[in-house]
Design a protein around this nucleic acid. Sequence first.
DNA 1: GTGAAAGCGCTAACAT
DNA 2: ATGTTAGCGCTTTCAC
Lengths: 345, 345
Amino acid sequence: MKPISLKEIANITGASPTTVSLVLNGKGRISEAVRQKILQAVKDNGYEPNRIAISLRTGHSNVLGVIVDDIGGPFFGALAKIIEVEAEKFGFRIIYCSSENNLEKARELISMLSHQLVDGYIIMPVPGLQDEILNLKANHKPVVLIDGYYPELDIPHVLVDNLNSVMQGMSCLIEAGHRKIGFVTVDIDLIQIKERLRGYFESLKKFNLKADDKLVLKLPYQMDKGKAVQAVKDLFGSNRDMDAVFFSTNYLGIIGIESIQELGLSIPKDIAVICFDDLEIFRLLPPGISSIQQPVLEIGRTATDLLLAMLGKKKNHLQTDKITIPANLIIRGSIKAINVPKFVE
Amino acid sequence: MKPISLKEIANITGASPTTVSLVLNGKGRISEAVRQKILQAVKDNGYEPNRIAISLRTGHSNVLGVIVDDIGGPFFGALAKIIEVEAEKFGFRIIYCSSENNLEKARELISMLSHQLVDGYIIMPVPGLQDEILNLKANHKPVVLIDGYYPELDIPHVLVDNLNSVMQGMSCLIEAGHRKIGFVTVDIDLIQIKERLRGYFESLKKFNLKADDKLVLKLPYQMDKGKAVQAVKDLFGSNRDMDAVFFSTNYLGIIGIESIQELGLSIPKDIAVICFDDLEIFRLLPPGISSIQQPVLEIGRTATDLLLAMLGKKKNHLQTDKITIPANLIIRGSIKAINVPKFVE
DNA sequence: GTGAAAGCGCTAACAT
DNA sequence: ATGTTAGCGCTTTCAC
């Protein structure tokens, strides 16, 4: 039982395909009588337009492509929902894809999406993808980057204010009396990650604390979890006087907590902890892990609105298309004043 | 700059569109000379076939539709990846959608997907969706249900063995000496949830323990979290002698842990805990929350393979298309023997 | 206000 | 071994 086509509706009602199309799309000036007849036939027969045919004919699909690093990750979960809600208001559907931060995969994804006639893109940057992004732009396909951007490219983007939110978190640690603050991050060429590290060093400078490279651990991207836990344990082992640690991503936070648990250290007595990008577990895990919560909803909504505006579907109320959004600092039990005179090294 | 079409490749090479199509699809018998020339032109011009046109012409899209309750949830994360990996081997793309366990939404999703010419479906059942599923089957659109099924319908499905894995978990609690075991579940008409509750009662029967309805708490679906926490606290309050509790879903487990934390109870001293459907947090949260881990990967892989087999893309090695997969019982610190003579009420 | 005809890019009969 | 033709379901001139 094949679905019924527009042409058949035309036959049934004695109208021409043109007229039916016009009625369906609310275009043209069709007499009310004919209009009603067609609408009735559509209803009676459960007619639904074939989107594929529409896409082929019109050249656009009302579909947006969303490429994130990990479709199974916690950042994506919240993001997906809000993007979908916003896009749906304007009749857009979403195709989600994971790049796994892999350049080849990301390239294939873009190629695939473009041949599905995707109308616009929300993309989490992958190192090296600049050319493909520029190419989309050259072909007048709107792109909005989220979570990061390419400093050398003039492409709209929406992300959290990485630098300042790290500095806020650092201030909090330092004001609580911590001086030997470790920083665990990942070795990947993404601006957001680099900005977080910069925030760490800027904070030390601001408070006149000496930076010590031994306190900074850069784990290789996608390192085996067991090895990563060991590496963090080693960091603790060789820096016994370290009294606080900043994890630059939530999965590093998890690895860090496992390390701390295995070492039998107590939070915050032995070590204060703060982590970039909140997770439910941070709230539940005694004594509560402090974190920098990304405004995921706002990022998703802003990015979608920006894209819709670029597609001419929506008025753009924003002044710029390079947007950073402040994060939310959540202080939990993992940071505690340790009664040391303030700002004295 | 529009992408180049097959016809243009034909013009460039002086071949006919048919020949180009044949070469592209590795069909027919084309002379090596022509073949090479066409392939070269394809490469030189960066030609890529327009999937939309192919779909319209052939009537299928090489796209599978996946409808789950919550695209942001933890079950989905692991599932999505494996489905994608399996499907990709056979050149299929995936469109993911959230039903939010809402019948209307699920209906719209199916309608939408079918007009996108989706070739097959993996669907997490929503109460009341039977007719739409049967309709797909009537239209020869293959469907595989995951995580649940409709007992009255003959539709292929893949899910964890809910009954037996709950009974295993219960045995573990009972053998550890617990007699007053609470069961917190959700009031939704899904077979998997009902089977879990049945597992609870069957276990009590098996061990000759008296069932007590006061120990069973059915929370309304999508109840406000704060209220749910309060309800669980009330359960504890009015059953002071309850010495263990079984949460029938992972999000109920989280709610339960919050309740327990707020009441200041100690796990497992005051109360033993086990939860259906593992979460990373259960491993990290001292003393470790015992859980029944769903074989998500295996469910996803099996379901996808089944669907691909139904599409004729893959040999089916399975005996049946109604598959239950055993779960993995993970005992952590939340269950501990409490030195009571065994199996004496 | 309505219809005829062309065509989006591709594939599949059916020639030759 | 390769080309001609028709048509998937729809929209869009352009005519009347």
